[in-house]
Design a protein around this nucleic acid. Structure first.
Lengths: 229, 229
DNA sequence: ACCTGAACACCGTTCAAGT
DNA sequence: ACCTGAACACCGTTCAAGT
């Protein structure tokens, strides 16, 4: 009944044990990427590792730590920028878009980020990088300090929305959805919704990336305007 | 399609009134306010209403609909503004802060809002109001259309953060937490974190409301700067 | 016809018992 | 001493059965 270990083949997955925090996280990231956060449960993870759920607690204190560790790995994928005052805005855009993309590629992880902004070394390095870029752009210290709270906040919230939008796109064609939305706006009583009906095209134009770029752009415009004033 | 209450339909609220969507939501809102979203489960709700969980499904299609309905009630608490071009910015601040406050008062509901931006009549009226205020401020149509996506996004994300911060404040004094944070920043190696260590005071100053006001302010500054350009 | 008890298929976490 | 089977206390949702 106990099947003898088969001869090693090249596409053999690393043999079952031994468990480790890194090994558990590897599997968790795989499930996260392919099936989203909801699918990453302690029990599913244990099953995937051919063990009981209790065994995971030797290496990871619980679900919350697991989620934070996954978030940290995602944050670690973002490439940092070497500040260049001549192109600080473009660099800031790249940095934030990198964070957005990394999160969108790991559906659901953004909800972890909004709930508990991480303080790991990796995310502190990202914050450090943002501060450097903002200062390179001539933003005041106080504005830079506060902005480096708000920029990730906009980014993570955008990532949640993008992930939801993307998921809906799997169920229903994206064009269909937008069209339904436009029609919904158009169908509103113009007397009570004069602006919404008038701006229906503007409300529904642009994709996620364009709208995210807009959000960051407007925010940076605001910071620049203050620096000048 | 709820059948009308049989005879003697007084406004008393005794042990076991007939179930209804409104009645279920009343209880849900109470639990939400006092214990947060996590505590609002179908089974808890059923228990509170002296019935089995299956009975709720006669009136509410499931947990997701319940959550959206709660969110809608929260959104309905926000007072709308009658647009006055002379003070459109103050009005926009009040509107967004009203939304923030309503969400913070119902811990966890903001996470529902980030995940699925609502399209109920109430939230459409809020969007309509925002558009009116933005246009009163001279913001272009396209910017207004996109901004009325971003402003609630900033608001709901801020609400999630505020709720978490508030919850942590119950476990540990708020001042202690800030002080720990400042020390954590100061303890970082200055060679790798020159900006973070230098700006530690700015990073940790201000409370949630001040930072939220800053976020909206900067964003509006950006919109105004674009309108002028 | 309407309502719901009981069941199904899951969770996260703990701890006594086995090795 | 280390690991884990089994249990505990929960979930959301369904549907056959009872009224």
């Amino acid at each position: 009944m106990a099947s003898p270990p088969r001869a090693r083949s090249t596409r053999d997955r690393p043999a079952k044990p031994p468990l480790s925090e890194d090994g558990i996280l590897d599997v968790a990231m795989l499930i996260l990427r392919e099936e989203g956060l909801e699918a990453v449960t302690m029990r599913r993870l244990a099953g995937e590792l051919d063990t009981g759920p209790a065994s995971l607690y030797v290496y990871i204190s619980g679900r919350d730590e697991l989620r934070n560790a996954m978030l940290d790995r995602v944050a670690g994928m973002v490439e940092l920028e070497t500040p260049d005052p001549a192109q600080w805005r473009a660099q800031l855009h790249r940095l934030m878009h990198g964070l957005l993309a990394a999160m969108v590629a790991h559906p659901g992880i953004a909800t972890v980020a909004v709930a508990n902004p991480p303080t790991t070394e990796r995310s502190l390095l990202a914050a450090e990088n943002m501060l450097a870029l903002l200062r390179a752009g001539g933003v005041t210290d106080r504005d830079a300090g506060w902005a480096c709270d708000i920029l990730p906040l906009i980014t993570t919230a955008s990532a949640v929305e993008a992930a939801v939008h993307q998921q809906r796109g799997q169920e229903e064609s994206d064009g269909d959805f937008v069209q339904r939305l436009v029609q919904a706006f158009a169908a509103l009583p113009p007397a009570r919704f004069p602006n919404l009906t008038a701006l229906a095209p503007e409300m529904t134009s642009g994709d996620g990336d364009e709208r995210f770029r807009f959000a960051i752009d407007v925010f940076l415009d605001g910071l620049v305007a203050r620096a000048k004033a």
